[in-house]
Nucleic acid binder design. Structure first.
Lengths: 109, 109
DNA sequence: TTAGTATATTAATATATTCTTATATTATCG
DNA sequence: CGATAATATAAGAATATATTAATATACTAA
């Protein structure tokens, strides 16, 4: 139980959470649940500029959420592990339950 | 499947994740797993200034992570639901597994 | 090699966050 | 009531983040 390591884990955990703390990046993760997508595909489907998408993807890659592989001139991004998407889903559930409790949501999304 | 509501959920989800994206706040959540704690207790055990602790707690309260109740002049904070701590744990697991894969961690924390 | 397409990077600006000091609020006790 | 304790809020400085336009790199095909 080395205290420095514990602190380091909290730090990394915070960086990961922070990288999840942006709507567009959550949408990217949501989209990648369905499978690998190229930068252009994501920019298109999420209505992002190419450079914005690329920067979000680079960040998510840096924090260990995504991996990338190149096929020709196209770069495909994928979730490193479905556990990330699961964690996002569980947070999403908390939000949805809260909305339901406050009668701000009637049907399941 | 109202698109505005979907976007709203992503927004709220991002705000929640962002509020988890700070090491001190993760430590607060970790500490509160054990039960309710006062501002002063948390400031003491996590080595935070009183006002810093109070601000972090206010933010976590605003994003729906924590609830507060007063007993006399003391305010106790608690996790709204253990699901939050569970989500944090699952993210923590992802970090720890990654450290292990990279041989940066030998024993379980 | 040149033109064209897909990504990535850089630099600048605008906005947001964190921490600190100082001050304010709320409650208890004498 | 005044003094003290616990917590909250405000304002400011330092740092970080998100977005954009412009440019650079990587690859393909002619």
């Amino acid at each position: 139980m080395d205290n420095d390591i514990v602190m380091e884990v909290f730090q990394l955990q915070a960086e990961l959470c922070k990288s999840l703390g942006e709507p567009k990046r959550l949408m990217i993760i949501h989209e990648l649940r369905k499978g690998a997508r190229s930068v252009g595909q994501l920019a298109g489907s999420l209505n992002l500029k190419q450079c914005t998408a690329s920067q979000h993807l680079a960040l998510l890659r840096k924090t260990g959420v995504l991996s990338a592989h190149r096929e020709g001139s196209t770069v495909y991004y994928s979730l490193i592990t479905p556990k990330i998407a699961d964690a996002c889903d569980s947070i999403r559930e908390i939000i949805i339950e809260k909305l339901k409790r406050n009668h701000l949501l009637t049907s399941v999304i």
